[in-house]
Design a binder for these strands. Structure first.
Lengths: 151, 151
DNA sequence: TCATGGCTATCAAGCGTTTGACAGCTGACC
DNA sequence: GGTCAGCTGTCAAACGCTTGATAGCCATGA
């Protein structure tokens, strides 16, 4: 009674790839949030820290594009992390009122801890999938992202 | 300069499976939102409609657990869809102040349209991956979700 | 030289969600 | 029969993000 074969609506909707994708991402994100909480860090904070770490000197607007959020959202996160002394805003050499983002020593230390947590989660997943399966999954996911983006 | 091989923090962080998962899910979700907008429907609305369709008589609290959100969020969505006449709240036979959720005819019609859109997106992805690759991806994603959930 | 376009950051308002707390009802255990 | 745990739904407040609009600065071209 939970399935109506005469009605094409939702036929196999729960078996769709996009549905499985949503469930997996949600579960992983929830796990990250749980494990990061003891450090006093939200997943979005970690994302910002590692983004700034991998591309120092990023501006707020550019970072917003990387993370697919609005500049205001980034500004809000930066303000919080700055008040904790984990991120600092420096003046851009050319554009005066543009601010480059950099990690402080405290920020790097925090990132080190947080990244260990995330790496642990990654290890759990890759451990279950095997190195070959993991690499394959990564490639397929990138393919999915490309298809969705240019569709 | 964007990569510091001496510092283990974030080594290959951008190549992680969980990162690729996030990117893919974000791209797909964004695409859904774009394609659903012309119908005047948000992705969360569609999710609620198809959930109620596949399991009629669901209560708000139970639906909240299915979707990994709070009961208030569900109540908010239901209130909106109810005001549009797409969902109705019936009294539970046993528990009087518990409400079962059901789709109206208008709701089913809307779902039919929306589901065609989603099915189209699914087809684009499975088309790029092939039937075998799609099924395989689905299985691996479910495996990832399981690992993350019971970790 | 000056004007225009494009980028930056920021303010204000609105929406949706979560968190915390509450009251009502049912079912099971004592 | 009475009590307590567990569920339901709802209210109030706080948080985070988006949308819309504004101001400042640099670069290109007339």
């Amino acid at each position: 009674m939970t399935r109506n074969d005469e009605d094409p609506v939702g036929a196999g909707a729960l078996d769709r790839v996009t549905w499985a994708l949503r469930r997996a991402e949600l579960a992983v994100q929830t796990l990250k949030e749980q494990r990061l909480r003891p450090l006093g860090l939200a997943a979005s904070h970690y994302t910002l820290l590692i983004s700034v770490h991998s591309e120092p000197g990023l501006t707020g607007a550019e970072l917003a594009r990387r993370l697919n959020v609005t500049p205001q959202a980034v500004a809000s996160l930066v303000a919080r992390l700055e008040s904790r002394g984990q991120v600092e805003r420096r003046e851009h050499p050319r554009h005066r009122h543009v601010q480059e983002l950099h990690l402080t020593d405290a920020g790097r230390a925090m990132l080190r801890e947080a990244d260990a947590v995330i790496a642990g989660i990654e290890l759990q997943i890759t451990g279950a999938l095997g190195p070959k399966g993991s690499a394959q999954l990564r490639d397929v996911l990138d393919q999915v992202a490309d298809v969705a983006r240019e569709a």
